[in-house]
Amino acid sequence: MSGPNRMTRRDFIKITTGAIGGVIAAGIGLPAIGYLLAPALRQDKAGKPVIVAKLAEIPVGKPYPFSFTVTRVNGWERTANVFGGFVIRLSEDPQDVRILSSRCTHLSCRVNWSDEAQGFICPCHDALFDRDGKVVSGPPPEALGHFDYEIDDQGNVVILPVERKTE
């Protein structure tokens, strides 16, 4: 009866069954992708500015260490991470300030200032950075990161708690 191009009832049933299977799989599968990837698609909020030191208390020339905590919301928990850095006054000029991160660019150990070496030493792999954060020796691939900052009316050093690459 039915020609070669006519769909039989059987074929129709088979195709419909397959289509229903596809609809259900998509109905659960597509939301599931969004569900599983949700944390990766979340926009992390930038932290609020943090006061790290009073400019008047920082001696010129010697890096002044500071640390601050940034609370991050991970899922239903807040994790406080401690970050640190150094405020370096290059001269008496209040604007002549550099703020370096203390996170080594090699494997994220904390660097310390060494008066003897006149540079930052990373205790993990004996890397040495100079006063400007540039790599002198050791494995680090790039210079120490820095923070954007401003000096407010009360003479506080206020930084944005986002580490930036130093070119």
Binding site: I13, T16, T17, G21, V23, I24, G27
Partner: peptide
């Protein structure tokens, strides 16, 4: 296949829609 499974599939779809 396909007679019984067709009915099963329609039932499954109805349940799935109900759940959503």
């Amino acid at each position: 296949w396909p007679d019984s499974i067709f009915k099963d599939a329609i039932m499954a779809l109805a349940i799935f829609i109900l759940l959503i």
